[in-house]
Amino acid sequence: MAEDRRGQRPARGGASAGRGGSSSRSSDARGGSGRSSSSSGDSRGRSSSRGDAPRGGSKDGAKGGSSRGGYQGKSDSRSQDRAFRGRAEPKVRTADQAEYDGPELPEDVTGAELDRGVRAQLKGLPEKLAARVARHLAAAGVLIDEDPELAYRHTLAARARASRLAVVREATGEAAYAAGHYDVALAELRAAKRMNGATDYLPIMADCHRALGNPEQAIKLAKSPSVANFSTEAKAEMTLVEAGARRDMGQLDAALRTLELAPLTSKSRSAWAVRLRYAYADTLESAGREADALAWFHRTHAIDSDEITDAAERADQLERRQS
């Protein structure tokens, strides 16, 4: 599963796996059930209970060591063959078939939960197919926070049906990221980017590189020219990833400089501002600057009304350590 990088992991912000619609996964293969047919193998009426030889058998009825004759043995064989043919083996679903089936769809999820823009991208599909894909994406959006693995499986079912739609690939990438499947997330978001040219998921892609042990690639994405045109929130997300990549490489001073270029003193109380301050305080502590770290943990707690970080607890720990 995904590493818990408090204040450093970028938030999911795409049109698919987030609140606006995504998809989730559920049980793997629900194998097809074969018909079960039983045959009694009862041959009553085909043999004679009298002592005279049955038709087709030896005159004394003793050939083959059976007093019932060869015809009766042939009847038993045919009956057993019919019984065997009637018991079909259950059909085993392949991995691709199970992925296509996807998890069971919640009855209360209709697909109408998706953002209007997402639904618009599905209109090119046949009506029934579009409805099924929409329900899988919507189910993923509902489940992504509480059960990201199930959400991921819903997106795989959507992808199996509509892999040429960027919104579906984006949803799959975001759900894979939430579930900790970083290699899949990276591949899916790259595919979405090729299809629609969007750069919104660059922070998530960079963090996938970090998780896969490639911090240099994360930093390379953080330096992409398109980052200059990001919103304040998106820039903060990329800053968090870049600083984290610097820390992965043991470059604490570079990580601090990266964070200091961000709007740490912003009056915003949004999650991005909270997480920036928290990352800065955490890096200061790692660098041995405990007094500065304590001050920034307090500053983080001051704007963290939703308590998305443990800044207050970290500050308390530092104070006890220094006393």
Rank of each mutant, 00 (worst) to 15 (best):
R159H: 13
A130D: 06
M249R: 08
R46P: 00
W296K: 05
A171E: 10
D207M: 06
L137M: 12
R25L: 10
L221S: 02
G111R: 12
S66T: 15
V167S: 11
D200F: 13
I204V: 11
A88I: 11
L202A: 09
R6I: 12
G244C: 12
A62M: 10
P148A: 00
G73D: 10
S77T: 10
M1R: 15
Y177G: 07
S26C: 10
S26I: 10
L221N: 04
P215S: 03
P103E: 07
P106S: 05
R19T: 11
G180T: 08
L202N: 14
I219Q: 15
V227E: 00
A287L: 04
E242L: 00
A185N: 03
L212D: 06
S16D: 07
S226L: 13
A187I: 05
A112W: 02
R194P: 00
L318W: 03
A176S: 12
A134N: 05
M238G: 12
E290S: 08
R169P: 02
E319V: 11
T232D: 09
Q317E: 15
G102I: 00
D306C: 08
D248V: 00
G124V: 00
E237W: 09
P103H: 01
A17F: 10
F230V: 14
Q121D: 06
M1W: 15
D101R: 08
L212H: 07
A158R: 07
A281R: 05
N214Y: 11
Q217A: 07
P215D: 03
H298V: 06
E3H: 13
G111H: 10
S22R: 14
S39G: 15
A192S: 08
R50Y: 07
L137R: 07
L252G: 05
L189N: 00
A295T: 14
Y100Q: 15
Y280T: 00
K128Y: 00
E127H: 11
